[in-house]
Write a protein that binds this DNA or RNA. Structure first.
Lengths: 208, 208
DNA sequence: GCAATAATTGCAGAGACTGCAAAAATGCAC
DNA sequence: GTGCATTTTTGCAGTCTCTGCAATTATTGC
């Protein structure tokens, strides 16, 4: 780990404010529904002005989803797939996703609450899919790297094959998470991971 | 084909108005960009009041995408997969998609223009993905049917495997279309279909 | 033609979001 | 701690999307 550059008061406050907004957003939407929650209400509970809300988030939906710095996540994903120790592509993709999103998903009440909201409100799901779509190309690029390193015979069309591979794995993670939520969000990350891999394998067998 | 029940003036006008709105929306967005185009401008060109615009479409994006009756499409998809003559699941899914969306996509200038817009504007893409996501469960159900009929050994988890299978095939269709657009939208539907199948096969081989 | 039904419209209003410039908070050098 | 530069917050005015409601107009079946 590189030295944390000793965040000053200004930065710490910013992070804290951001979290306060996210929490307020999720709480109010949980209580009042997606349309019942207004930016005014959220700002009010977070103790900021409505104008400041939009300094932190582009939209109400982003605040609810807690859109984090996607650049950060992108770099983590690329690094994760590239440095995977396995030669198994499915395992490389899925485990990278779990390394990155797993801790987010399972540890805090906020994240669990948020995931439930996403299942409940199609509009949020759509926005989240949009975020993931932006990640897909990064992941696909990392997968092409992966293939370049290990396979002697590359697919004829590595970029496009990589995109489909990513779509497949992402779908299996999404479905494992969906079931995790349906089960009351009790199981641990490892079992989600295993389930996700299992689903992918079964699907491949079925499709072949 | 069942007799068309001889649409009256009222219904014909409605269909025509709907089309005028879609066309106006696509034209103006093409010219002015997604944010440059307002509902007022679109309504104006379509010769209706802004209020009427919202009688036809829930949002600006829907007008641009020309959201058609999804119930119709859902039934067509279910029927298509169920009645596929092949035993090859990938072929069944992909060819059904092409049967339904192919004619839409390739025949008219409007549709081609629309597809270009979707590639260009991430916000539209995510909205469209969202629409497809809603189709996914219908398709997945049809796939489970398909598996029930043909496979002696069902996957342990047919519903979820079906969802992932659908996601995989949809992704390959999406990417084939994307490349079709990139190539200037010149190739025919058959070559898109073959390309889509080919991509899926290559991906499966790579992932196995 | 006439009544029933459906489509269009205007209007008023809520809510999301933006640009701008003033005010407050913070960081840093002295 | 004082003063100055930089950020952050905020208020305000304004645009745009979208909704409910009630009046108006068009289509239909009789």
């Amino acid at each position: 780990m590189p030295d944390t550059p000793a965040l000053g008061l200004r930065d710490r406050k910013r992070i804290e404010t951001r979290l306060r907004i996210e929490t307020a957003a999720v709480d109010i939407v949980t209580a009042e529904g997606l349309d019942g929650a207004t930016v005014d209400m959220i700002s009010d509970r977070a103790g900021i002005s409505p104008r400041t809300f939009f300094n932190y988030f582009e939209s109400k939906e982003d605040a609810i989803l807690g859109t984090q710095d996607m650049g950060e996540v992108q770099r983590a994903i690329a690094a994760g797939v590239a440095s995977a120790e396995t030669d198994d592509l499915v395992a490389a993709i899925v485990s990278t996703m779990f390394q990155i999103f797993g801790p987010m998903a399972a540890r805090t009440q906020l994240k669990a609450q948020r995931m439930a909201l996403v299942q409940e409100h199609p509009r949020l799901l759509s926005r989240q899919i949009h975020q993931f779509t932006q990640l897909n190309s990064t992941m696909a690029a990392a997968v092409v790297e992966f293939l370049n390193k290990r396979e002697t015979t590359l697919p004829r069309d590595p970029e496009h094959v990589a995109e489909i591979a990513v779509a497949t794995c992402v779908a299996s993670v999404r479905i494992a998470v969906k079931e995790w939520i349906a089960d009351g969000a009790t199981a641990d990350i490892d079992s989600m991971y295993l389930r996700s891999i299992g689903l992918t394998r079964e699907t491949l067998n079925t499709l072949q």
